[in-house]
């Protein structure tokens, strides 16, 4: 009985939020948690820096990257359905063109829509004056 009463006291402390026991959850779709800058989410490819060398393709453990033609140049296409976000493509990129963004809401209805082509991945780095 004393053990149960001890437990009841500590749970009551949580109900009344005594002593640094606040509500910690976040109402997800309405408010979001701040992501760390290093978060490994959806890829992004620097349009100017990428040379389409395919090192990311060869180093990808799950072979989820393919180099495809986009306009006049070659860029990677990432199949998010197979990607495990290990970050190797970022590590090995010789031109440092690949990076990973904080976009993590990647669920979709079809497998085809999980293939992110260059049109969705490319971004233009702001040139510093």
């Amino acid at each position: 009985m004393p053990g149960i009463i001890k437990g009841l006291i500590v749970t009551l402390k949580h109900v009344l939020q005594i002593g640094d026991r606040p509500t910690v959850t976040v109402q997800y779709p309405y408010e979001r948690m701040k992501l760390a800058p290093r978060f490994r989410g959806l890829h992004a490819v620097d349009e100017d820096a990428c040379i389409g060398c395919g090192i990311c393709d060869t180093n990808c453990p799950n072979s989820s990257i393919k180099i495809v033609k986009h306009g006049t140049r070659w860029y990677p296409e990432v199949n998010i359905g197979m990607c495990m976000f290990c970050g190797y493509c970022v590590d090995v990129c010789p031109m440092n063109a690949m990076k990973m963004t904080g976009n993590y809401e990647l669920a979709d209805y079809t497998r085809e829509s999980l293939v992110y082509g260059p049109d969705k991945l490319l971004f233009k780095r702001e040139v510093k004056q």
Binding site: R38, M84, F85, C86
Partner: peptide
């Protein structure tokens, strides 16, 4: 655990599968 996972996220960008 969430606090610890946030630390991991700061460190390597992933919360469970760190690499």
């Amino acid at each position: 655990r969430e606090k610890a996972l946030q630390l991991f996220e700061m460190l390597c960008g992933a919360r469970m599968t760190f690499n």
